[in-house]
Design a protein around this nucleic acid. Structure first.
Length: 565
RNA sequence: UGAGGUGUGGCCAAGUGGUACGGCAACGGGUUUUGGUCCCGUGACCCCAGGUUCGAAUCCUGGCACCUCAGCCA
């Protein structure tokens, strides 16, 4: 597995698996699963789990299942199911024939309910939700037993079948495990196994009016599928004794018995990760939808221009452990830049255009200059870009009164137009309000291509676009969704919504992009020279392209300027 | 004050008794027709206190801090 290519650091789960293989547990097999509930869109935190589960299976020659944990019809939809399937596939993983639904196991799970009743370890409870809650006790005080606990096996069997038959109203009864109402582990205080809920299930329709709880469905689903390593997040650690308790009751000798292993979920700075909060952002209109490019959802990242490769690399680099963490979003952005730097074709685009008239360039003349598509990859070739008397440069690349260390264009200074010529600023044209509307320059015809061998030092190199070649575009600039690194974790408990960044989206219109990008399909990625990586948004229309800024290039000048203040 | 977990540089994270890998960030410097990329350099006595040992981040004891659990959610 590691032939000097690229190895990811070890982690405790790999240690466990390797030990299991060494001892030939489960015949040395490794079967994992990614088990989302289809009640929302997948986010970067899920990506960590997906990469972990599918990665482990791939690494140890096993397989990984994709299983919808759809035991609560009230919150689940096919829209979510479809988006999950799409997102996992987009990330680059393949489950082959192993797409499963917990709802496919409802009959089997029901039969296990009957089995537990038969063993005298499950009973029908008549208490209301409030009563169940009131009798559960607290972490430091034991709960009290339900009257249903004393029922006979026969009566429980009868009542459970009536529950399934729809004889009782929603919430009036439950099937509970008979474990220990005074257990220090709250999850062992006679947990509910089945509840009555007349809701149409997106797959089973109205076939059922009782649905199993997570605890009574998850481990069993793992067992049915022959999962060897059931990997989940830390909050389920206290559920593990219950997971094992059920397995003790139903597992047959000789079959694979899954083991639950917990790891710490991902937290990312400047964003929120819970499905509830992401849903709130969508429903409150704080963002335009689940796939808003500011969202940490897979669909949002995809629309933003992230590549699956960058996300997978990120997942590898953050590692897997049990300590709570807060990963710097800068690492995610780094992974993205590294990937895009290698593969994104370069193109010239001017976001805030400033007109430049080259006084000594013949009026009406035009010529084609050669531009390199990607200095990191010669095979991406070259292209021709037209040059003319009137070009546009970035407003920020000219200063009438340049600060120290600024080496772009300024009155009397010479700078290079990349791939074109050296130009020297000879004058500034302003409007009535004193705003610079145009600058005048002269070019040096001997510097064609942007080079002279007379030893002249021209430090500044600018991107530009000729007036005739420019096509207009809308460009959407994104910033972090929140203004603070940990919106969910502030010392005074301020609501995370307080920190929503009002400037997370800035829309620029009438930006100028070179015509070579005309017709690029939504999702196409480019580097706009010196600015950053951008991709075509699906909102684009013929003749009206829209670009999303995926991520900026590192900007040392911005840093210098900032620290100077 | 119950149970289950976790504590290694600003952020992740290796290390499993032999004298602290790596990545990101930050800060210097070099190369450069992107102030990009690339290259070089700079940082920890491992939560605290005792103990065992020739030797401890790793073992023992006692503290402290933080996270999870009282849904008929997952």
């Amino acid at each position: 597995m590691d032939n000097g290519v690229k190895t990811t650091p070890s982690n405790f789960i790999r240690d466990i698996i390797e030990e299991d293989i060494r001892s030939n547990k489960n015949g040395g097999q490794v079967v994992t699963r990614f088990p989302p509930e289809p009640n929302g869109y997948l986010h970067i935190g899920h990506a960590k789990s997906i990469c972990l589960n599918f990665g482990l299976a791939r690494q140890y020659g096993g397989r990984c299942h994709l299983r919808m944990d759809d035991t609560n019809p009230e919150k689940e939809t096919v829209e979510y199911t479809d988006s999950i399937i799409n997102d996992v596939r987009w990330l680059g993983f393949d489950w082959g024939e192993h797409l499963y639904y917990a709802s496919d196991y409802f009959e089997q799970i029901y039969q296990w309910g009957v089995l537990l009743i038969g063993k005298g370890v499950a009973y029908v409870c008549d208490m209301s939700p409030d009563e169940v809650s009131a009798t559960r006790g607290t972490p430091t005080a034991p709960g009290t037993e339900s009257p249903g606990r004393k029922r006979s096996v026969e009566e429980n069997l009868y009542l459970f079948s009536r529950m399934r038959a729809g004889e009782y109203p929603d919430g009036s009864r439950t099937l509970r495990a008979r474990i220990d109402m005074s257990s220090p582990n709250m999850h062992l205080r006679d947990p509910v196994l089945y509840r009555i809920k007349r809701a149409e299930h997106h797959r089973t329709g109205n076939a059922w009016c009782i649905y199993p709880m997570y605890d009574f469905a998850h481990g069993q689903s793992d067992y049915i599928e022959g999962i060897t390593h059931s990997i989940c997040t830390l909050e389920f650690e206290v559920h593990r004794p219950l997971y094992d308790w059920f397995l003790d009751k139903i597992a047959e000798a000789g079959r694979v018995r899954p083991r639950q292993i917990e790891f710490a979920r991902l937290n990312l700075s400047y964003t929120v990760m819970s499905k509830r909060k992401l849903l709130e952002l969508v429903e409150s209109g704080s963002v335009r939808g689940w796939d808003d490019p500011r969202m940490p959802t897979i669909s949002g990242l995809r629309r933003r221009g992230y590549t699956p490769e960058a996300i997978r690399d990120f997942a590898d680099r953050i590692g897997v452990a049990k300590a709570d963490n807060m990963v710097d979003v800068a690492l995610l952005e780094h992974c993205l830049r590294e990937d895009l730097n290698r593969r994104a074709p370069r193109v010239m685009a001017v976001l805030n255009p400033l007109k430049v008239v080259i006084e000594n360039y013949p009026e009406g003349a035009t010529e084609e200059l050669e531009a390199i598509n990607n200095p990191e990859d010669e095979s991406m070739g070259k292209r021709k870009v037209p040059f003319a008397r009137v070009v546009y440069i970035e407003k920020d690349d000219f200063r009438e009164d340049p600060p120290p260390k600024y080496f772009r264009l300024a009155p009397g200074r010479e700078a290079r137009l990349k791939f074109a010529y050296y130009i020297t600023c000879t004058g500034v044209v302003k409007d009535d309000k004193g705003e610079i509307v145009e600058i005048r320059c002269v070019y040096d015809p001997t510097t064609r291509g942007g080079w002279s061998n007379d030893g002249r030092k021209v430090k500044g190199t600018l991107h530009w676009i000729s007036a005739e070649d420019a096509i207009e575009a809308e460009v959407r600039l994104y910033d972090h969704l929140f203004t603070v690194p940990e919106p969910e974790n502030t010392k005074d408990g301020t609501d995370y919504r307080t920190f929503i960044n009002p400037d997370s989206l800035k829309v620029l219109t009438r930006c100028l992009v070179e015509s070579s990008v005309k017709g690029a399909k939504p999702g196409s990625r480019f580097q706009f020279e010196r600015l950053g990586y951008f991709c075509v948004d699906p909102d684009s229309r013929r003749g009206a392209p829209v670009f999303n800024r995926t991520v900026m290039l590192r900007d040392t000048w911005a840093k210098i300027e900032k620290s100077a203040r």
